[in-house]
Design a protein around this nucleic acid. Structure first.
Lengths: 165, 165
DNA sequence: TGATATGTTCAGAAAAAAATGAACAGAGGT
DNA sequence: ACCTCTGTTCATTTTTTTCTGAACATATCA
């Protein structure tokens, strides 16, 4: 029975989301749209996942905010339907780009501000270590920017590095 | 006053931890050990961060579990002191290795199990899409394994890719 | 216009996560 | 052996997060 297969996937995805700071319901809705490639409407999602309409609505809004789910209009249908981005790489890039912007860039900015202030009165602060951290994060910043700027190239590069297709 | 600088760094780190699924207190303790490179004892950490001894003890235990903090014995001291891994790259590699093991590998395993089951009764399941996802995650799996196996090489490679030191 | 269908928002309820602090365990010292 | 210092554990409390469901908005159609 493939409902079981779908459920397992949905729950796995939900648990993974949780451990990476993504609301489990959001991840579950996403998983449902991933594994069944049909368009779903709000009510069907909610009854399938046993969540309230309010919660479902919020999850979809968030997923659209991440750029991984979009509304589709179905001929003769009054309701709104939702589809997820079909290409896993695209999906990943959008999530990474968004999380970088929201949760990495501010940290790098803050670290640089700390370094600047600490440069003037370094008492008790491990300046050299912080500089090394800034350098490391800056490396990731450049790498991510480069990869995100050209997705097909990024994909090729990553595959190349691992020596497989 | 550098206590303020330290506090800001600690809070930034704590907030970042939160958004990536790491307990904020754990991240704050880590931040304190990062930015001051002295050894700290439990009581001093707790009073500096205004957390209970129980909480502090648990945080340190967890940080040791991640391999980024270790106990040091100070001559003539009965208390235990704690130091964090001094090299940011080492720190990062340990965290990545551990999170991969705990939170990525099981997902890849589960996805493969899903694929196997769905191969037999694929009704309603987007097989091709799941295969593409498996392929993508497998690429990351190989890449991470390669990089984690030789840290200095990984570090060199990442710097090379970004065209800087 | 009124009735129905659909979606969103948000105050309050429920659940989950995190923190506290007291009890306990062990290690040293006297 | 007894007392003190140190650290851990865990039941309970507190805080935070998440979810629900009802009220509201909007759209469609008769």
């Amino acid at each position: 029975m493939d409902d079981t297969i779908i459920d397992e996937f949905v729950e796995t995805w939900g648990a993974m989301g949780s451990s990476w700071g993504v609301n489990a319901s959001v991840a579950r809705v996403h998983a449902l749209l991933i594994i069944t490639e049909q368009p779903w409407c709000l009510d069907d999602i909610c009854s399938r996942l046993q969540i309230s309409k309010g919660n479902g609505s919020t999850c979809l809004k968030e997923l659209r905010g991440w750029g991984v789910v979009r509304k589709v209009l179905l001929a003769g249908e009054r309701r709104e339907f939702f589809l997820c981005e079909p290409d896993p790489w695209q999906m990943l890039f959008r999530i990474v780009a968004e999380r970088k912007k929201r949760e990495f860039d501010p940290v790098l900015g803050s670290l640089r501000a700390t370094l600047e202030k600490a440069g003037k009165s370094p008492g008790g602060i491990a300046l050299e270590r912080l500089k090394a951290m800034e350098k490391m994060l800056a490396t990731f910043d450049r790498l991510a920017s480069t990869l995100l700027a050209d997705e097909s190239q990024a994909r090729a590069l990553l595959s190349l590095l691992t020596g497989k297709g």
